[in-house]
Design a protein around this nucleic acid. Structure first.
Length: 269
DNA sequence: AGCTCATGGCGAG
DNA sequence: TCGCCCTGAGCTG
């Protein structure tokens, strides 16, 4: 489930559970074992999240940089931690809690400078207070690339993934194939604000819900539905099903090696 | 038991 | 644009 909201939630959860505490750090799977040994017994003294990147800080040892990629998952739980299975790349344990990381694209010990460099190549993140949507607008407004591709480009906006992309375009009635330079300033400003609100709710609930109350199935006189990824959405993974608003068949296509979903009626050029 | 697919991203060409 | 890396769930047989 890793889009930006997942990472910010993980940062929050790690801070609450382990922040300011000595922690046991290990790598049952082995690929992070050397670094884990360096950190074992130290105090976790800071966390940060930017887009889909998570950073766990240790005094004088820099940061553990985690990127979940497509498959990475965290399992958080209360002590006693279960016997670690051989796919746990990173286990952190302390107090009454443990955290197991499996399948990440990145789990590496990095310096302050390396952390800064990662931040510098990322666009503004709707979940970071003070991040500036103008930086994204500068890219978008000059680009012939489709809005759908721009939204997934982490150098343009950090933290948006395939679900938020599809859903925010639907909520603003924007054809995913429109070029960035054909987007109006007001449209981008509205999408940015909406992303910030949706993703904050995503952090709170630890899932993605994008359907407005008045469009929920019950309000529309339909039975409640359970979506595959666990939230209420308009178009994501709803290929060939009727649009909740207009009944038109939701379309799907490949775009930059990812599945795109949209309603051709509600989202017109 | 084996296949396919998934909310990512990187480097080679 | 393609192939590749990471893991697990949900099929199929």
């Amino acid at each position: 489930m890793p889009e930006g909201h997942t990472i910010h939630r993980l940062a929050q959860d790690h801070l609450e559970r382990f922040g300011g505490r000595e922690v046991r750090v290990s790598s049952p799977q082995g690929r992070f074992a050397e670094s884990a040994a360096l950190l074992d017994g130290l105090v976790l003294d800071g966390v940060d999240a930017h887009g889909k990147h998570l950073f766990l800080g240790f005094p004088d040892h820099g940061w553990v940089h985690v990127h979940l990629g497509l498959f990475g998952k965290y399992a958080l739980g209360t002590a006693p931690a279960p016997p670690p299975t051989d796919t746990v790349r990173l286990r952190i344990a302390g107090g009454d809690h443990y955290s197991d990381l499996r399948g990440p694209t990145a789990c590496e010990l990095i310096t302050d400078g390396e952390k800064l460099a990662i931040g510098e190549r990322l666009g503004p993140d709707p979940l970071r207070n003070g991040d500036d949507p103008d930086r994204a607008w500068n890219r978008i407004s000059r680009s012939r690339t489709t809005v759908a591709a721009l939204l997934m480009d982490q150098k343009v906006v950090a933290g948006v993934g395939n679900v938020y992309r599809a859903e925010v375009l639907f909520r603003h009635g924007i054809d995913p194939y429109r070029q960035g330079r054909d987007l109006a300033r007001a449209e981008w400003d509205a999408m940015w604000l909406d992303l910030a609100a949706l993703m904050r709710e995503g952090v709170r609930n630890n899932r993605i819900d994008t359907v407005r109350d008045e469009h929920l199935p019950e309000a529309m006189g339909r039975p409640p539905r359970v979506d595959d990824h666990g939230g209420e959405v308009y178009v994501y993974r709803r290929a060939h099903l009727p649009c909740h608003i207009c009944g038109t068949e939701i379309r799907t296509a490949d775009l930059a090696a990812r599945n795109l979903f949209w309603c051709p009626e509600c989202q017109r050029r």
